[in-house]
Amino acid sequence: MDFGPQLFLASLDGMVTAAVLALTALGLSLVFGVMRVVNVAHGEFFMLGAVIAWFVASNIGGHAAIGFIAALIIAPLVVGAIAAAADWIVLKRLDYEPEATIVATIGLLYILQQGALVTFGPVAQAVEPPFNKRIEIPWFEGANVGWGLFTTSYKLFVIGATIAILIGVWLLLSRTKIGLVMRATQLDRETAQAFGIPVEKVYALTFGFGAALAALAAVLIVPIQQADYLMGGDPLLLSFIVVIIGGLGSLRGTLVAALIIGMSDGIISVFFTPTLAKIIATLAVAMVLVFRPQGLFGAKAQ
């Protein structure tokens, strides 16, 4: 394939990766921003979203779209509730002490993953997309249109839906009382408490909301990929990379970094092997934390 179309296709695929990553990482970033909690179980909430989507879609008959829409609603709600409960039962009692919460969320990671193994089983399962039309891209290569120049309607939908969700989240955080309360808590926990904000409830809500975003991302991607109890590792690692490069707790930085990391995942693999690309990305994260802990796009020091 010529270089031009190759790059174009990689970018298009990169957009899908970036979209899903943006949602997932936003959840992680929000939790860190508001609660100062590094949630190592975040990838498992993503996995739970996909697994629940499969349960819902396979139990609701009829057209694939019905199951999919039901999953879009049910999966984030269930996952959000599980996460909020975990916050209430475990993290709250640790008083959100950073190192203790990391250890606790590592424990949570195993519990959720192994719980999925028991209920969902060890084998990957597919969820049918509500629609999936192959769309030719009119790009002439030499004299003839060749194979491989395409995208699908569902991939475009994922990108569009993500943009819509992100706008929704932005509105929620900037225009609603819940958003205001969250931001107030983020800025200064003690003062917020003094002003009568029920910080503990805000924390549970935030933790649940962050997990729900990961679940939502998973429902969107599961018709393209598959649900599998071990699928939480990659989104966790990539979200970490995104949140750190974007600056811990900076939502705007997170989005910019998600776009860069998602796109480059597609584009770098045109030039290098993906394993090398991942090595470079993880080392970059380590170096950013060592030499520029505010992230590449964060302004203020931590």
Binding site: V38, P98, E99, I102, L237, F240, I244, T273, T275, L276, K278, I279, T282, L283, V285, A286, M287, L289, V290, F291, P293
Partner: peptide, 27 residues
């Protein structure tokens, strides 16, 4: 390198180095 950071950042830096090392073995 990692000791230039503390707390949570130290945990993540060591995690990332180890992940890079694991991937290097695969590479």
């Amino acid at each position: 390198l990692a000791l230039r950071t503390t707390g949570v950042a130290f945990m993540i830096v060591t995690l990332m180095f180890a992940q890079a090392g694991y991937l290097t073995i695969l590479y």
